[in-house]
Design a protein around this nucleic acid. Structure first.
Lengths: 212, 212
DNA sequence: CTATAATTCACTACATTTAGTGATTATGAT
DNA sequence: ATCATAATCACTAAATGTAGTGAATTATAG
């Protein structure tokens, strides 16, 4: 059996080295490279044979979501696995849409890591139990509760950001050169679209969605 | 020279194993244990000789801050080092007040990790450059800008959480069986303590500080 | 035990947000 | 070109939040 060529991408150097040490003594695994950002990874892939890319989600410059997409665009045969400390349904969603092959939490142990790597090498996807659970839960919630996944307009997002920045309706109106009434309308629309109750909800939503 | 007895505490199993692998082949280092939460660590310390404890900041149950404090209370001779992905001035502050001996970012490399470990073993503290910078920056900002470093009371935090959860003043009063006036006072105190303007600011603060 | 801080309550006044209803004018996509 | 959506504006009324001032009671730590 051929060795599995693995590339690890993570800006946390210590984690990188740790993971490398973890994979160093495995028979069927060949650690092709350990890189610390997405840009390096893409350059590396141009001239190296890689079967599986293991990457962190949160990286400066280019995050794991973007890197995964770019890899899949250019090298659809390469299997990608994301490592993260959290399991956020939205993130998982995006990644799955971009054909990610695995999602593992960083509290996974060595055996799970290896199981995941072998699965990917065999052409199977691997998602940790916790991730699968979160994912199905969120799917479930989406069906039962609110079917209207509300796409916010540019203006609404703009206003939402200003709300998060502690601006009052009046201040927002001044900054955007529009009437307070208009800002008010957007505010109301935001609340009703998102099914929220008040400003606190708006701010919470914005921060959790990474809008502000 | 005696070997340095090291205990690692981190709930991220993969990181734990990786770090263990990293320290496994070092001459002067003896990895005494790898545990995954603070409770286990405290039990372990009762019956084992440990020179240096390396711990994660964010752990379920008992976080690194609390664990560090408890260790220092009971075993002041043990050197403690915190590992974290971020360098938050507030956190660093608390830790330093509790006599932490080191603070390393998780993107540190193997050589820096070893340097830190050796420093601690020699009785010197070790803080990574980035951490030192953030810390002095925050000291600087504190002098120039706002002198009030605000420790929120338990009640204030409780109320802040309820605000984040979209409760109105009246609803909070009902849930806590107190007068609306009281809730109002807490609200005002929160705003002035934190130098914020309105509910949006409170929610933003709470989420960014991980309070809610 | 005794300062200090936390928690509680009260009253007033004003600012801001929320809710309801309705309507006109861009803008973009088919 | 037209249909849908986005963006704009208007008015009213009620609810909620913000600000100022003051004070009593209860914990907490030194």
């Amino acid at each position: 059996m051929e060795k599995i060529n693995i590339l690890i991408v993570d800006d946390h150097h210590m984690f990188l080295e740790g993971l490398a040490a973890l994979l160093a003594n495995i028979q069927d695994v060949h650690l092709t490279g350990t890189l610390k950002n997405g840009k390096e990874a893409l350059e590396f892939l141009e001239s190296n044979t890689v079967d599986v890319v293991i990457m962190d989600i949160s990286m400066p410059g280019m995050d794991g979501i973007e890197l995964n997409k770019l890899i899949k665009d250019s090298y659809p045969h390469i299997k990608t696995m994301v490592l993260s400390t959290h399991s956020d349904p939205k993130t998982i969603n995006k990644l799955i849409q971009d054909d990610v092959n695995g999602y593992l939490l960083k509290n996974a142990d060595k055996s799970e890591l290896l199981e995941a790597v072998y699965s990917l090498a065999k052409g199977q996807n691997y998602f940790s139990e916790e991730v699968k659970e979160k994912y199905t839960n969120s799917m479930f919630a989406r069906q039962s509760k609110s079917n209207e996944e509300p796409p916010l307009s540019r203006r609404e997002i703009e206003i939402l950001k200003l709300i998060v920045a502690q601006n009052t309706t009046q201040e927002i109106a001044e900054k955007l050169f529009i009437s307070q009434h208009t800002v008010n309308s957007h505010r109301k629309n935001l609340l009703s679209k998102l099914g929220l109750k008040n400003t606190a909800g708006l701010v919470k939503y914005a921060l959790e969605e990474g809008i502000a």
